[in-house]
Design a protein around this nucleic acid. Structure first.
Length: 473
RNA sequence: GGCGCUAUCGUCUAAGGGUUAGGACGGAGCCCUCUCAAGGCUCAAAUACGGGUUCGAAUCCCGUUAGCGCUACCA
């Protein structure tokens, strides 16, 4: 039974890249009847915010993604320290009393890589103990093997065999001078303690993995399997960032744009992964059944947004596909919530509501469309768009609509067929093209120049309201 | 600078020694039509560059270039 985890640090809102990482972990867990763990990596007390934690819950909640176990690293600090100390006692870590460096500039321009601070790595234990006892602050560093340079290796489920010489790995920190564990220490300690079997995370951690392997080895445990994911990047090739790319990176943007949660999950899955059989629109179960590490790509994927439009056209298309093809009764709750949030009434019985949704969704691509382009189906107060007005202002159109209203009122029937019959009969009698009345009717009924078949619109709007709007033309 | 990863249409991707390099989004056009979508049909659009290996390379190897990641007492 695999045990996987998604381990975000609560330092900003839920990033779409993080959401995708969660999804891939979740898919793997569901596929193999494993356990999905949400672990909040909040060891950086300076940067953590409660707000950010809430946005993670909010984002995952919106995407309808759940987890089986939950942990917060800040509540497990004792475990992290204990493991760090155990490594220290084995002689595989040492105290570094060098004060924290404020000037990073110098280091960046140096020729070779920094590996360790001279004098600290080889300090006799007695001196180290004495200075620590005297209260001098220190960081605990991992003692990377240097005497006989070894090669650290592992097989990544996505990137294949990876190797790195210990000569290229610096003596990284395990414990900060304030006693807090670093990311590397906390992460590995928890992965060990929580018996994580597969670490599925962003490719930005690929080179960190060598350090983690050293920690696992020092702790005397078998490392888990690793699967690194290609990154999500901007059209200019840069890493997606809040500062540079704004709303594109936040999942709330897609929620607010009227995306269906599953459609967005589907879209995210297609960024860096493929079922390899040309399928694109897939249900949640289909995604679970098709997911495998073999399908994951190795190159970064571009989120195709523009400066004036944060939505990737393919995401929008996928959303419209789901919106138009999913069972209406599954779609209805989303539409209901969207209407409620916009303060629009639902003047329909449940049955009528489903029928109306089914008619109008054929031209919609987001939930937002129900309250904008679809406003007239729910409220009697709606604007008539300029292009719709042109059709309504065709010579004789308004008179014909009023006449049609009277005839429909006089008729017992009110179906697509009966409306079409009356309308065409009127057109013929008055010697005008049916299209003139049809387009004018759509305009007066919906305020829109375009939309579903006009006869379906009559029925969706309902007899009384339709007649009322025609007579007021 | 050092180390690592990556490179197929504008974008997401398929093909992993032999295909006219396939699909999808987006774009263009045609059909359908009460409008607009949808749908159907068609078109334009790619193997970063240079060397090898091979009868044959998008695919394997080397180099170059470019991008990204790591190189913190961030994660």
């Amino acid at each position: 039974m695999p045990r996987v985890r998604f381990a975000p640090s609560p330092t900003g809102y839920l990033h779409i890249g993080s959401a995708r990482t969660f999804i891939f972990n979740w898919l793997y867990a569901r596929r193999h009847k494993g356990t999905m763990i949400l672990r909040i990596d909040d060891t950086d007390i300076e940067r953590n915010t409660e707000e950010s934690l809430n946005s993670i819950y909010e984002g995952l909640g919106w995407l309808e993604l759940g987890w089986d176990e939950f942990y917060r690293q800040s509540e497990r600090l004792e475990l992290h320290r204990k493991m760090a100390l155990a490594i220290f006692e084995k002689g595989l870590a040492y105290r570094d009393f060098t004060p924290a460096q404020a000037d990073l500039e110098e280091k960046e321009h140096s020729e070779g890589p920094w590996l360790f601070n001279p004098g600290m790595r080889d300090m006799p234990r007695e001196e180290s103990d004495r200075r620590a006892a005297a209260g001098e602050p220190f960081v605990l560093r991992f003692r990377v093997p240097r005497e006989s340079p070894a090669t650290v290796r592992f097989v990544d489920a996505v990137y294949g065999e990876q190797t790195k010489s210990t000569a290229d790995i610096e003596d990284f920190a395990l414990l900060r001078s304030n006693g807090m564990p670093t990311y590397h220490m906390a992460s590995c300690a928890d992965d060990i303690d929580l018996r994580i079997s597969h670490i599925i995370r962003g490719q930005d951690h690929l080179s960190n993995t060598f350090k983690h392997l050293l920690i696992f080895e020092a702790a005397g445990v078998e490392p888990p399997q690793f699967a690194h994911l290609p990154l999500l990047i901007a059209p200019d090739g840069a890493k997606l960032s809040k500062r540079k790319h704004g709303p594109v990176v936040s999942v709330t943007t897609y929620r607010d744009a009227g995306f269906l949660p599953h459609a967005y999950v589907n879209f995210l899955c297609l960024l860096g992964w493929s079922p390899k059989d040309n399928r694109e629109q897939m249900s949640r179960q289909e995604l679970i059944d098709a997911f495998s590490f073999e399908g994951i790509n190795r190159s970064n994927a571009v989120v195709n947004f523009k400066e004036d439009d944060p939505i990737d056209p393919k995401a929008l298309w996928l959303n419209s596909q789901h919106l138009r093809t999913m069972p209406v009764d599954e779609l209805a709750p989303y539409v209901r919530r969207t209407l409620e949030e916009a303060g629009l009434p639902i003047p329909y019985t449940e049955q009528e509501f489903l029928q109306t949704i089914d008619v109008i969704r054929t031209r919609f691509s987001t939930l937002r469309d129900f309250v904008t382009r679809g406003r007239a189906y729910f409220s009697d107060e709606f604007p008539i768009e300029p292009t719709a007005l042109e059709k309504l202002n065709q010579p004789g159109a308004r008179e014909l609509l009023r006449e049609l209203g009277e005839r429909l009122e006089a008729s017992n029937e009110f179906t697509e067929q009966s409306v079409e019959f009356e309308l065409r009969k009127l057109a013929e009698e008055r010697g005008v093209k049916a299209g003139l009345i049809i387009n004018a009717a759509r305009a007066v009924l919906t305020g829109q120049p375009v939309g579903p078949s006009a006869f379906a619109v009559f029925v969706a709007i309902g007899r009384n309201r339709a007649i009322q709007r025609l007579r007021a033309a």
